[in-house]
Nucleic acid binder design. Structure first.
Lengths: 192, 192
DNA sequence: GACAAAAGTTACTGATCGGTACATTTAAGC
DNA sequence: GCTTAAATGTACCGATCAGTAACTTTTGTC
């Protein structure tokens, strides 16, 4: 069981779950998609839920990694980075394989808060909130967690709105609103 | 086929779908839950998708009806009503059987935009946007649809955040943010 | 009360679900 | 090269999936 084999299975399963949903994706489809046999699949993962959890762990790590790096690339100061998150969001929205937030979808399919899949999805959002609270504190907000939470409300709203595919550029709308909230919490932008 | 029988089936199916999800709820479970036989169920609905669509239609109508009435009960002016939406949201969030937005969940399970279930869920959000654009216009906003969209971003974000069950009162956070956005778009509140 | 149509039930279909028993192949250690 | 254990493949499990054929009961009309 070389370590990269399992990772490859998780990577491929992640793509199928993201595209197809969790309940709608059967183990047979995953087996067909990954080219591995069913027994091998169950050697790597005790059951379907564990495969889903592994996929979500990978998604959490790679998504947050990508988002944070993108924010840092687009701006140097904490305030600018929070705003830049919406530019990163716009890039994500424009990707041809964009299918919404994997964790929102996971929670939609596994509703009981005690369910490990639900709990792990919630953890992803908690980690995001933590990061943004730190940014808001660095930016000098009087109530860093309140500011972070309102910025993230706009982020989640933008994702959902984009998926529901109605009029308007959700990322741009969210960015404009966030700009107003930042101005209100921190005063006029002094950088640059 | 008395007309109220079908409605009763839709009402009960709606509750099960809302609590349990769409793919995870089998027709056998619905048959057991409603007390009707399987053949009768298929006399009323050609297939499962049609039953889901009927449930979503009912949900759309009753939810928007409830929300609009609640907003009107809480405030008389358009601006106050938009803000009151978040108080209504808080009431919804506090309900013991709250399970998030049925349409967000439906879109999460039926991802193809062409799918009738997806399309009908998107329509619900479109109707909400229409209503809020009208309110924003009445409130005197320079760009009514932009204001409406940003208010609704906060609403969707609050629902998702509440479902992901992390710290803070999502409805209150959203309300506070909306208040700032309204102030920015309309100036200080002149009513009352 | 006769009769026709609608609404109901029982019992079943083939397909697919998540998961496994068991035989076979591959690869490493000596 | 022989032994041994891990990795894999075949072929299957009972349960459940959405959906249906054939038959019985209920209901409204005259």
């Amino acid at each position: 069981m070389r370590p990269n084999k399992r990772d490859e299975l998780v990577r491929k399963a992640l793509a199928v779950f993201y595209r197809n949903g969790f309940h709608a994706t059967g183990m047979d489809m995953l087996v067909a998609e990954t080219g591995v046999s069913k027994t091998s699949m169950y050697k790597h993962f005790r059951n379907k839920d564990e495969l889903i959890l592994a996929a979500l762990r990978l998604r959490d790590e790679s998504f947050r990694n990508w988002l944070y790096r993108r924010m840092e690339a687009l701006s140097e100061c904490p305030r600018g980075q929070m705003l830049a998150m919406f530019d990163a969001l716009a890039e994500w929205f424009a990707a041809p394989d964009f299918r919404g937030c994997m964790f929102i979808k996971a929670v939609a399919e596994f509703q009981e808060p005690e369910h490990p899949i639900h709990a792990q999805s919630a953890e992803h959002k908690r980690l995001l909130a933590e990061h943004f609270t730190a940014l808001a504190r660095k930016a000098g907000a009087a109530e860093p967690d309140r500011l972070a939470r309102s910025i993230l409300l706009l982020k989640e709203g933008a994702i959902v709105t984009r998926v529901m595919g109605n009029a308007g550029d959700a990322a741009a709308d969210a960015r404009a609103a966030a700009d107003i909230l930042l101005e209100h919490a921190l005063g006029p932008d002094t950088a640059r």
